[in-house]
Design a protein around this nucleic acid. Sequence first.
DNA 1: TACCTTATTATATGATCGTTCAAGAAGGAT
DNA 2: ATCCTTCTTGAACGATCATATAATAAGGTA
Lengths: 204, 204
Amino acid sequence: MAAKSTPKYARYSSADRRAMLIEAGLSCLARDGILGFTIDRICLEAKVSRGLITHHFKSIDGLLAAVYETIYGKMLQVLETPEPAPDRPEQRIIAIIDAMFSREFFNRESLNIWLALWGEMANNPALLKVHRKQYARYRADVEAALGDVAKARGLQIDTALVATMLISLVDGLGLEWCIEPKLLSAKVAREACYKMLEPILGPL
Amino acid sequence: MAAKSTPKYARYSSADRRAMLIEAGLSCLARDGILGFTIDRICLEAKVSRGLITHHFKSIDGLLAAVYETIYGKMLQVLETPEPAPDRPEQRIIAIIDAMFSREFFNRESLNIWLALWGEMANNPALLKVHRKQYARYRADVEAALGDVAKARGLQIDTALVATMLISLVDGLGLEWCIEPKLLSAKVAREACYKMLEPILGPL
DNA sequence: TACCTTATTATATGATCGTTCAAGAAGGAT
DNA sequence: ATCCTTCTTGAACGATCATATAATAAGGTA
């Protein structure tokens, strides 16, 4: 009896393989935008045969939705990490702003992915569904952080409006920087947020 | 001799046909995003045979660049329209904000087009080239309008930073509204801009 | 060891992609 | 009326797209 030959391929649990395919999808999206998000390229990136995406995600759109859920989830997880010693009410909103412009999120690869997904949102119901769920969490986090500061300082603010302003400014700054990094820096972007918020909330 | 038969097709000048194809391209972009921007669909939309785009624009990317140049140009043209009676220095920046959130620009169709193009910018050098040129004009307009107010009021402001903030906020608000129109209105979006600018420039 | 579930491969299929190119015809110029 | 420029058509081409499906085999279980 000959020794057992080396396996032709490795088997993974459904969860593991899904994670691998999502990672490959993120790479393709970052590199070539939505036009690069194809079965062939993603399977090549993941070193896997063409049938796997359909098997694990039912369709390419299923994978795209999973990709969006993943990247949004990573961001929210960081935003929702509790402060080790939350002694000041403004700590949370500062942490959120810091996180948004940290190297982990404020980089070309990540922002390219967001831009590509934003551009497809209107044309992809599955994507929009994921967005609604994740965005609700995001907005709740931001509103809570803003509300904490206002309450602690005895300020009456339109929390929803200020949250909209902050979320929009953050997205807009990301967009500007992603298209033309020379015109902006993470530091300046952060300053812009403070310059907008401090007249409303007081010094941060 | 029989009467001359009706022509099989109409001939247009290069400029006219280009305009027609650009218009068809805009429709496709608005309807289905960048994935809908294909030779087949655009020619179907324009009721024209498949060879025309290559003939007039050399390639599909050439048309996409022309489409971007056109939509950006339309916006700038409105922004640069001089006030009939420019008696107050803040008039220009107010006009710019009003224009950005007017029905002409702040609508689903237009914003879908912007989103689709933003998502492809990083992956399309021809698009980026157009952007650089048009964005420089846009930024100059905004900085000039902000500078006028500051100068007239004797304020020392970081014009470049405030322009970045306004441009980013406008883009971000457009993005938010485009993805989820229920959460926002043109009126609220305008208010957001004033709420950000007035602590810096004084009442507008 | 034999079995069994199912992850994985690999191929086939039909649709659609962008580009090329030769033929044709429109409509102004001569 | 004839010519000529060039706009326009329509088909051909190879590449790539998403999906379906049958065959294969990995790796845990009995």
